[in-house]
């Protein structure tokens, strides 16, 4: 086996950086969309009106039961049909990730809200607050603290999953690495480098989650 040549990787860093920026960008947009719609869906999921709660549950179960890569494909071919024009792979990937991740974020947020004891709402109601005021000032701040570590963990998984967008010809970090690896015929070097980069990013992020938990969340937990 020939000695490993990482100089060739260094030479290609600007190209790989472009791919990484796409990965970050897509992940960030999908996190924002997923948490936003996930929060809304969790409200429906907790609705006292049964059909609404069931519809929301149906959405969650559906997207948790299909592979992400299928959703990416599907939206890629479906969106132009619905909108009547080509939208490009980035927008369709963003839509696919948002739809998919909404289901997961919804469940995290729902569990966070339900983790707050009913007595806390009662304490708010007893002091004359409306249900909405009690949710906003008492339940939500606590629920958000409780769910932050899981939201961040889910976001790390989402970032890793952005590597699936190669199926719709998007050039994310993983795709960039695979492309140059084939061009330069240095598969081992580039795939080792790609693994190292993913590991560094995700490990650092998960360490941050670990640090956040006791300092910020533990101090207010009962």
């Amino acid at each position: 086996m020939a000695p490993l040549d990482f100089a060739i990787v260094v030479k290609n860093i600007p190209y790989l950086w472009e791919g990484l920026q796409l990965s970050f960008g897509l992940a960030a947009l999908a996190i924002v969309g997923g948490i936003l719609f996930g929060a809304m869906l969790s409200v429906l999921r907790l609705s006292r009106f049964k059909p609404v709660a069931l519809a929301a549950l149906g959405y969650v179960n559906f997207f948790r039961s299909v592979p992400l890569i299928l959703v990416i494909f599907w939206i890629y071919f479906l969106v132009p049909l619905v909108l009547g024009k080509a939208t490009g792979p980035f927008l369709s990937a963003w839509i696919a990730f948002t739809l998919f991740e909404t289901a997961y974020y919804c469940e995290i947020i729902r569990a966070g809200v339900q983790s707050i004891p009913k007595g806390q709402i009662n304490a708010g109601l007893a002091s004359g607050m409306t249900r909405l005021q009690a949710m906003r000032h008492i339940v939500m701040p606590q629920a958000f603290r409780n769910m932050t570590p899981i939201l961040l963990t889910q976001s790390i998984i989402l970032f890793q999953d952005t590597s699936l967008v190669y199926v719709v010809t998007l050039r994310d970090f993983m795709t960039s690495a695979a492309t140059v690896a084939n061009q330069e015929l240095k598969l081992v070097e580039f795939y080792v480098f790609a693994a190292a980069v993913y590991f560094a990013i995700c490990f650092t992020a998960s360490r941050l989650v670990g640090r956040l938990s006791p300092a910020w969340i533990g101090s207010v937990r009962r």
């Binding site: 007595g119 304490a123 007893a126 002091s127 004359g128 409306t130 701040p141 207010v220 937990r221």
Partner: peptide
Amino acid sequence: QTLRTRIGMVFQNFELYPH
């Protein structure tokens, strides 16, 4: 709603807001 602003309640488990 109005009434509850004039009735104070103390619970068995305190129900202070931990945050």
